[in-house]
Structure formats: structure tokens, C-alpha cells
Amino acid sequence: MRAGFADPVFESQRVFRGVLDAMAEPGRVITLQAPPSSPGLLHSATVAIALALLDFETPVWLDGAAETAETVAHLRFHCGCPIVDDPARARFAIIASPGEMPEIGGFDAGTDEYPDRSATLIVQTGGLVAGSGLRLSGPGIATEARLQVNGLPPWFWEALRGNHARFPRGVDVLLTAGPSLVALPRTTWVEG
């Protein structure tokens, strides 16, 4: 069994702050300092986000690649989170193999009354580089931001545009690569 945060209070605060900054400036690459050790195929940023944000009240859906015995044991022990089979019941999803990920529409998009009670998808990528690539615009971005993302299937961006159209409902996405993360809240418009 791997350890979690060495200092749960300060480390979880730092990770929370990192995710907050990422959500506030979509497209900006946030790299976490000294992230915790990660089981299975999980990136260290993925595990850090899980340790900071998941708890007994946030059901989690894991895709096939993520759902190893070691990972499940790690999340159950350190986060205490329930692990669900049905993506629609998840508050968070961890997708280690985005090529096979289920339709974004299958996750909880919240309600008109409570659009925030929706799922956040943590999607692992092959790399995140700011400055070139896809064109991002929307709240939190002054004019435009450029982001290169490796390893996601081409239909992903179309699906994300569909998600955008459902505002205020919809899901929010956190992309991870190693210790780095980028946030794509539902309000961000991504052009291929």
C-alpha cells in the first residue's frame, strides 16, 4: 500500500489551489510540485487530484485501464470514495485510456437548478503543452489560449463542443499528464 499525502493539510491545499488556478485560467498548464506516488496507470497529477478532492461523498467511476486492484485499494483507503459501475452515478471519473472512454453525455451533467452537481472528468493524456495547438476561448481567457494535447481521440473535441452547448449543465474536464494538469471547464470553447 502506497502512502498518500505526507502532509495532508498543506499538500491537499496546494493541489486544490492548483486545480482552482487551472479552472480560473483554462488552457494554462499547472505543474504540481512533489506529487504523491501513484499506483497502476495513474499519473501523479491524477492521484494528487484524487487525494485532494475525492471523499466518501464523491462516487468515482474508473475506466478499464484505471480500475486495477492496486488503484482501487489505493483510492478506497486514502479517499474513502465509493467506486461505481454506472458512469451516470459518478461525481468524478478517472479515464486512463481516453481512446475507449464512454460518451461524455453518459456522465452526470447536473440539473438546471443545481448545474454544479455534475461530474468532473479526469482524463489522462500523453502530454500537455501550452502555446500552440488547439485554440481555446471563453471565460478566464483574455483573447485566446493555445494548447497542444497528445493522446486524445479526435472525436473528443467535438464531444466537448457538444458539452459546451448544454450550459449551464454539462461536465468539467481536467486533463493530466504526469505531474501537470489543465482544466477545461464547460464554459471553454475549443476549436480543432
Partner: peptide, 8 residues
Amino acid sequence: YRLLRAAE
């Protein structure tokens, strides 16, 4: 021994 999760 080693702490897996410090007393909380």
C-alpha cells in the same frame, strides 16, 4: 514501522 496514514 512506517506510517501509511498518520493519526487523524
